[in-house]
């Protein structure tokens, strides 16, 4: 059994009434009333409860005190040096940015200078990169010229004496 289901026992041990759905709805309305988040009719209803029901009056007083306590509760400070720390951090961020952009500018200048020293290279490089052609292979022609086989050369060689002979 999940221990959470024993919560109601603890609830009653602590002197807290277990709320049924009607009480929960009432509490929700009272809570919204405290925040000014109710309709005119709901406001009227809560006021009637507050005028007539001591338990609602008690709950309301407790809620007001809870609100007051939440707002007045002391909170640990992030320290007196906070303004200096923030400004120092902002300076550091700004310096880092300046270094980054300075470095980028220097790199851009360097590239520009290098490009101007090699105009031919750069223009050829640009040409080769700016005019991409799709690769096309003709199926009826070899992509690479195939050298003739030695057999045909021999045949040619044989023919020559024959021709000489015929002269």
């Amino acid at each position: 059994m999940n221990p959470k289901f024993n919560a109601s026992n603890n609830w009653q041990e602590n002197g807290v009434e277990k709320m049924d759905s009607l009480q929960r709805d009432r509490f929700e309305l009272l809570s919204a009333y405290l925040d000014g988040e109710v309709t005119a009719a709901e406001r009227q209803q809560v006021r009637v409860w507050l005028d007539t029901d001591p338990s609602v009056q008690r709950q309301y007083r407790q809620l007001l005190k809870l609100r007051q306590s939440l707002q007045a509760m002391p909170v640990p400070s992030s320290g007196q040096q906070m303004p200096e720390k923030v400004l120092t951090r902002l300076d550091r961020i700004r310096n880092r940015r300046m270094v980054f952009w300075g470095g980028t500018a220097i790199a851009a200048l360097f590239l520009a200078a290098a490009g101007s020293l090699m105009p031919r290279f750069s223009s050829e490089f640009a040409k080769s990169t700016t005019a991409p052609e799709p690769l096309m292979i003709a199926l009826n022609q070899p992509a690479v010229k195939i050298p003739k086989a030695p057999v045909s050369a021999r045949r040619k060689f044989k023919a020559t004496p024959f021709q000489v002979k015929s002269y």
Binding site: V16, R24, E28, A32, E37, R58, Q62, L66, S69
Partner: peptide
């Protein structure tokens, strides 16, 4: 939102009831 706020209050109130009274 309405329900969560009410439930949170309900829980805080129940835990701190003796002090809030």
């Amino acid at each position: 939102v309405k329900s969560r706020i009410a439930r949170a209050r309900q829980r805080l109130q129940s835990q701190l009831q003796t002090y809030l009274d």
